[in-house]
Amino acid sequence: MNTVKEIVAEHGHESSRLLEMLRCLQSPTNYLSEEAIVGVAKELNVPISHVYGVASFYSMYSTKPRGKYIIRFCESAPCHIEGAAEVLEAVQDQLQIAVNETTTDGKFSLELTSCLGVCGVAPAMMVNSTVYGNLTPEKAKKILAATE
């Protein structure tokens, strides 16, 4: 795992590349720790409030611990039309968590995302970097059960 110092150096200490740095910092644990946020602020010599303001703005970042797998569930209109609500209910039911929560075993976090741009195969969701389409409640449950 790269240290904050290394990641900031890799991005040339350019504060305009903060979004990329935060992505790198987040990738091993799926969330941005206090040390990561303070560390990147210190290395870039920018205020902590600035880094936190950015981290709390973009929905792909989290400053709270999240599960190993992040489910980004699309509830935009095209997915909604194709039955996303039932699928979402099934996912919540299977994992016993609500949106923006993490399973007690720390395996899954459930979030809503804006359109994933795969409306041709709606409803859709992303599990970490993998996109799944044409979901039904059963298919979604199977996918989660098979995720290891």
Partner: peptide, 26 residues
């Protein structure tokens, strides 16, 4: 806090309806 005093303790945090003036890491 920022332009005038240069300490930047305060910033806008969160997004949308939850946006509020806050501090680093709250």
């Amino acid at each position: 806090c920022g332009e005038l005093q240069g300490v930047d303790i305060l910033a806008s945090i969160n997004r949308g309806y939850d946006t509020v003036v806050g501090t680093g890491l709250n």
